[in-house]
Simulated assay, not measured.
Amino acid sequence: MKGRKLLMIPGPIEFEPDVLHAMSIATTSHVAPNFIEVFGNSLELMRTVWKSPKGQPFIVAGTGTLAMDMAAANLIEQEDNVLVISSGYFGKRFNDILERYGANTTILEAPIGEVVSLETIEKELKSKQYKALTITHVDTSTGILVDPKPIAQLAKKYNTISILDGVCSVAGEVINQDEWELDIVLTASQKAIGVPPGLALLMASEKAMKVWKNRKTPVPNYYADWSNWLPIMKAYEERRPSYFGTPAVNLIVALETSLKIICKEGIDKRVKRHQDLAKAFRAAIASLNLEILPKSTALAANTLSAVYYPKDIDGALLSAKMIEADVIIAGGLLPEIKATYFRVGHMGSVSANDLMAVLGALERALIVLGHPLEPGKGLQVFQNKLLKDN
């Protein structure tokens, strides 16, 4: 026995040993030369992972919600029209944040398990001038994957800022920020980036920075204001000491460690690994007579899976059986249906062995609870799919 359980939720995830070791080193000064080098290198590595050589990176102590808050606070002013494209819980959260800053929001919500069509989005963009639109790349509550590229193209066509919530996608799904002309791509450290919770990470395009500089009113959030943070980012990247608020020193050391691991693997290769494992896992889930929440596999994220409980199984009992087998999964999050499904995270340093452990525990739990299936079926399908695709 390892003495701990396998954490397979959609964040925090299982972290690389080198990342955890970086968290444990003696904390240095935030203006020490060695830390300035780490911070500056982290900013540069972010551009590689985001595929945004022209972007302005921000690393700030906080959560993914803070990154969303920073985008809204700096780019939105009172009475600005903003279009929110929602595929779950976190689309609605972005709507709430935007309204807090006085935006006139219009929310386009997809039916559960679906995405908003491009035709619907374009029709709305034609109806009036929108300053910005938001896209949830992968909604952690539903496991729905949205293709940001054509939406970003529509945003450009209608002179609208595009803001991508990449909390559950950056470093796990295909993102080409500069090529797709996405203005903001934001995330949090504890997902596919592979660092314990505590960092809000954001990349802003040249256009987004220009919109911020030309705003008519002060940013109504002191901590989130880029006026305070931009000089810090520039100083660290130029390897100079600077101060606004004390950075999360050990988390940033861990961030550099993880970004180096990501770049050594190669971002394209890393994304393909996520895709291959997710396809095999979905095939295994289907073989167990289980249904995923997305209406089609084309809409299913590669960083997590949302799976409906069998109708004859008590979800709480299933989760308890999984914990007994030393595997932790997440329950549902979408309020309307939260008791009907569970979620499995498969991002970051996730391996085939991790997902085989999940499937083994899941099979045993289902059998014990009376769900009809052939023992070993899911594991066999998972293995065969991986072998076929590689």
Rank of each mutant, 00 (worst) to 15 (best):
P294D: 11
K191P: 06
L277S: 13
M8T: 15
G376D: 07
H346K: 07
I59Y: 09
R100G: 09
V307C: 05
N104D: 13
E256T: 05
E119N: 04
I329F: 07
H21T: 07
W50P: 08
N221I: 10
F39P: 01
Y89A: 10
L7P: 07
G331C: 03
E122K: 07
N214L: 06
T105C: 11
A200C: 02
N289D: 12
S29K: 01
P111H: 04
D96P: 02
M203Y: 10
V174S: 12
N228P: 09
A286I: 11
C168M: 13
M46V: 11
D147H: 08
L362F: 01
M209R: 06
L379T: 01
P335C: 13
S242G: 04
S42R: 10
P10Q: 15
N176T: 09
K5C: 14
M347P: 04
R273W: 14
L201K: 08
I163Q: 05
G245H: 14
A316V: 12
V381Q: 00
T246I: 01
G332H: 02
I144D: 12
N176R: 08
L202H: 03
K311P: 02
T120A: 08
M70W: 06
S127I: 04
S162F: 05
N41G: 13
R239C: 07
E77M: 04
L182P: 12
L362H: 02
Y101F: 06
S24K: 05
S305H: 11
